[in-house]
């Protein structure tokens, strides 16, 4: 989805909901990979301070549907996130756990008054996206931002291995 389209969508939904509260949106592209054995990657998104201290989880996508919670066995492969946060959690986590996503671009929106952002202190942060794929590799992308949002901020980076384009937009 392009930013123009996103804006349109926001405007559109403003008629029905508290759209103006949308403050942070993330686009994560899961790339198409030419590999013999493909599994959808596990992906974690979180906010850390510019000093690297974990601040707030945003999402974790894993094999949610497996019986007996077996998909949690590979959560440790998101090794950075596992160490920073995951190992302290009980799965599934409401509002955080989600199923793995197919190839394509996926978007997440968070309102300034959402539980994820409402208590975020003023400061310099990174959005961190980590992906780990079964029989594949691992990749981490960081995008900087300032909070609270006083002007529109846009950041993006192209992944090289397990992630495609990751884009962050913040709107006051």
């Amino acid at each position: 989805m392009q930013w123009k389209k996103l804006t349109a969508a926001l405007l559109l939904s403003s008629a029905t909901g508290p759209v103006l509260a949308v403050a942070l949106s993330v686009q994560v592209e899961i790339p198409s990979l030419q590999v013999a054995e493909y599994h959808r990657p596990y992906v974690a998104l979180w906010i850390e301070t510019d000093k690297g201290r974990h601040q707030q989880d945003l999402a974790v996508w894993y094999d949610l549907e497996m019986k007996d919670n077996e998909g949690t066995k590979w959560l440790k492969d998101l090794s950075l996130w596992w160490r920073r946060s995951g190992r302290q959690l009980e799965f599934p986590v409401d509002g955080l756990s989600g199923a793995t996503r197919p190839v394509g671009t996926h978007e997440l929106f968070f309102a300034a008054d959402s539980p994820q952002l409402a208590n975020l202190p003023e400061g310099a942060y990174h959005l961190v996206v980590e992906a780990a794929r079964e029989v594949g590799g691992r990749e981490v992308i960081r995008l900087p931002f300032q909070w609270p949002v006083t002007h529109t901020q846009q950041q993006q980076q192209q992944g090289e291995h397990e992630l495609g384009r990751v884009a962050l937009q913040l709107m006051p």
Binding site: E70, T72, K73, L75, K76, W82, R83
Partner: peptide
């Protein structure tokens, strides 16, 4: 040495 999941 670092494991996750219910059945480890």
């Amino acid at each position: 040495t670092v494991l996750s999941g219910d059945n480890a």
